[in-house]
Design a binder for these strands. Structure first.
Lengths: 220, 220
DNA sequence: GGCCATCCCCTACTTAGGTCTAAGGCCTAT
DNA sequence: ATAGGCCTTAGACCTAAGTAGGGGATGGCC
């Protein structure tokens, strides 16, 4: 990896032929002497590395048959600890990127990145460095609202609150909910406030969006 | 696709430069005289079609800034009813594909398809046919009518109103929407009122529910 | 030109949504 | 008996949401 010795060998593992093709073009454009090997599943990728022996980089799609999230990355690392792996995915989620590094990836390349950035990233990784599209220490902020997160928050709701949330997500007004449940509007408002707090959002609309993300169905 | 009259013009709208690039290669490989125009967002795509006038095909990614699932497709169809649209996405979900056709797409191309299949699909679509990777019958049942209904109502919205609705369905407040668009909050409220009227609902929450019925996010 | 329709933007107003504080009744566990 | 959780309500208060109506710019149409 000093640049004088050229002739890189790179394995591209992605189940989308389209993406493999594009990645190959990007590689051949930025490196002058590179051999590219295709793989459309994790097993194929591992077999390719076994066969070739000296591989300089494996480009792994995060969502691919056999990957199962990061378990595929871990498997690849276990089988070939010396071969650097660059993860590729459509996500921009910082926590995902960081976790990829924790699992031994040498870099994370979002598909949304411009071609030059991708080329630069691959160059740095081939050079032995770690590449991330974000600063390495950023606070990761607070918007980590994954499904599981929401699901666990929903579990904290009391039965009555669940009913109210269900009606909210059908588009009912507080007044209508109060009538349906046979209680006062003030009560409904109290429930709504509690729901918003537990879900960690700040408006009725956001609560409804969260609920519908889980295909939250009517209780009635 | 008769080969005698050549000179196609195709707009590729995808936020991933990698995919655009690959698609361009696929196009140039299977068609001999084709002009390809890039767009990285729905707005850019619409602007490109406006500018070029005679466009033979728009290739639209389902997951892209401004798309909001099928909302973007509906908007594009409303703005340019005569231009065929080919949807592209990483999903293989049949219901999603069929729904794309219901909303006026001329075809649905899964990214996981081999390059030859993609080329063949585009050829057929340019030839005026509808292309799907699956048989056309199977009724898909369900809420087809109401979806259709919503789609046609969405088509009546002005561009600005679509933007506002999109932001509403992300849980933004009127104030935030106003800031993002660089207008006054009162303006946003006026748009919201118009949206509610056109969608036939009576509250922001109901509008968001309707909009999200057309919203299909995949992780790909 | 004048006309009409549409869209976008705005001010001023009314209503719905949401917070805060405080409090009573019900049930269950300690 | 006491404590704690849940459901309930009330009133005051503030902010967000939605309505009504008008002004200005554009573009097609007679």
């Amino acid at each position: 990896m000093d640049g004088t010795e050229s002739g890189w060998t790179v394995v591209i593992a992605d189940d989308h032929p389209l993406v493999r093709d594009a990645m190959r073009h990007a590689l051949m454009q930025s490196l002058n002497d590179v051999q590219v090997v295709d793989a459309s599943s994790l097993d194929e990728a591992k077999a390719a590395v076994d066969r070739l022996g000296a591989v300089d980089l494996v480009i792994l799609d995060l969502n691919m048959p056999g990957m199962d999230g990061f378990t595929g990355l871990a498997a690849m690392r276990a089988a070939h600890p010396l071969v650097p792996v660059a993860m590729v995915s459509a996500t921009n989620d910082e926590t995902v990127m960081r976790r990829a590094i924790e699992f031994g990836a040498a870099g994370f390349i979002p598909k949304s990145a411009p071609l030059e950035t991708i080329a630069e990233a691959i160059g740095q990784i081939l050079d032995g460095q770690v590449w991330l599209p974000i600063p390495r220490n950023a606070p990761s902020s607070g918007t980590g609202t994954s499904r599981q997160d929401i699901a666990s928050r929903l579990g904290e709701l009391t039965p009555q609150q669940l009913k109210v949330l269900s009606m909210m997500s059908q588009g009912l007004l507080n007044k209508q909910i109060a009538f349906e449940l046979g209680v006062g509007e003030a009560t409904v408002k109290a429930h709504v406030t509690a729901i918003l707090k537990k879900l960690g959002v700040h408006s009725r609309t956001q609560a409804v969006i969260s609920a519908r993300l889980l295909d939250f169905k009517t209780v009635d």
